[in-house]
Computed example of a mutant assay.
Amino acid sequence: MRAVTYQGKEKMTVTTVPDPKIQEPTDAIIRVTATAICGSDLHLYHNGNMVLNDDYVVGHEPMGIVEEVGPDVKNLKVGDRIVVPFNVSCGHCHFCENDMESQCDESNRNPETDYGGLFGFGKLNGDYPGGQAEFLRVPYADQTSFKVPDNHIADEKVLFLSDIVPTAYWSVEHAGVKPGDTVIVLGSGPVGLLAQRFAKMKGAKRVIAVDRVKHRLEYSAKKIGVETLNFEEVDIPGMALKDMTHGGADVVIDCVGMDGKQRKLEKVTNLITPQMGTTSPIEMASMAVKKFGTIMLTGVYLTPATNFPINHIFARNVTLKSGQTPVPHLMPKLYEMIKNNEFDPSDIITHTMPLEDAAKGYEIFDKKEDNNIKVVLKP
């Protein structure tokens, strides 16, 4: 089959790899009908050698048609149309039974790690080849899937149930956003835009989007109706946000992570310490949140952080939350919200292209070219 594979720093290439096969009786094989490039994939694009071998199949936002099922699969049959969450979860451990599927005890047996398995993130994350491919093996298929009830609803409407829709929704919920709050969202990429929308739906009085990409900030302002700040237009963004909010926001949601803009000193720091990428979004959040406020880290951080502002967070009684979203249990509720037209996640799609053009899609997405927000690939 054809699949997107990691070939070194900033090099994702479509190559021919072996077709996946049933390995366990609880597996299913799907024919992928749509998949997407995620901001988390850019962490691999820039720093993939930390977790990936060359030729590893990437991607964790797929959906498709069931082609084959193992003998112990009970809830799926050949021909079913499913969305596959980025969490690999067994369904019966303590964490899965308590809606904490991202920390499944069974899906990642790597002795070097202590968290659940993920598609497309290599051996440290359970060694599950990803879904930017023509076919995908789905382990624990009954649990690691959402069967789409209505076959007339377009792939583009439900594809993002795999990751970015529940990630944005859970970020707002986990952060405790409530009616009347002021919420700052760092980043107007796909997750950030959806988080801004969910914060408004939750009843936030003010939502402020922070980015430096003009067309993404314009989307935030025009399509979602939130305030915006281009952080490159102010001297100290965290202090500017604190001034805008008269003492700080109730909640700051960091949807950027380690791939934010690095300061010059960090480029040196990253050569002599375990840190890679930047901690600037965390530092901005620590300045912009009010005393007794909440910071939610949604953007990915893969390495230790040298300048983590724990002193500032502690001294001001700030609550810090973080983590991988437990997707499976959220999918039915969010599907119903999409079906009932409460929001439309497909309106962030700016580029749809064949799987064979994935390298171009990564470059456009990484550089934010051609007014890009979200790339969908069609095998």
Rank of each mutant, 00 (worst) to 15 (best):
K202W: 10
A195E: 02
N317S: 15
A240V: 07
Q275H: 10
D80N: 05
A204Q: 09
K202Y: 11
G122T: 03
Y219C: 03
G187K: 04
G189C: 07
Q324Y: 14
V210G: 11
R216P: 08
G131Y: 05
E227R: 08
F86P: 00
Y56G: 02
T325W: 10
I282A: 07
P20V: 08
N317P: 10
K21D: 11
K223Y: 13
K9A: 05
P328G: 11
G122C: 07
I253Q: 03
V268A: 11
D127I: 06
T306C: 12
T279Y: 02
T319M: 13
L217S: 10
T306F: 15
I224P: 12
V191E: 09
G120Q: 05
T269I: 14
T273C: 05
D41M: 13
K378P: 02
V252T: 05
S171G: 15
R2K: 14
F86I: 02
A195F: 01
R316G: 11
V318P: 07
T319F: 06
G126C: 05
P354E: 15
A168Y: 04
N108S: 04
S145W: 07
H46L: 13
L193Y: 01
L241K: 03
T303Y: 08
P354S: 14
K290P: 05
D250V: 00
P20E: 10
L42T: 09
S346K: 07
M353P: 08
A199L: 06
M258C: 03
I295M: 04
G248L: 08
L320T: 06
L355Q: 09
T306G: 10
C96V: 03
T278G: 05
Q262K: 10
G203Y: 11
T306N: 14
I184G: 08
A221H: 15
T16Y: 09
G48P: 06
D250F: 00
I22V: 12
E97V: 08
P281C: 02
K374T: 02
S280Q: 06
P85H: 00
P139D: 10
A3T: 01
L330Y: 07
V165G: 01
T298K: 01
H174C: 07
V375K: 04
G361F: 10
L297V: 12
G277N: 05
N311L: 13
D41P: 12
T228A: 09
V289D: 06
M63Q: 12
D127V: 03
G117D: 07
D357W: 12
E173Y: 14
I37R: 10
T144N: 11
K74N: 08
T303C: 09
V289W: 05
R316V: 08
K242Q: 14
M337N: 05
M296R: 09
K157I: 01
F308D: 12
I295A: 03
L302K: 13
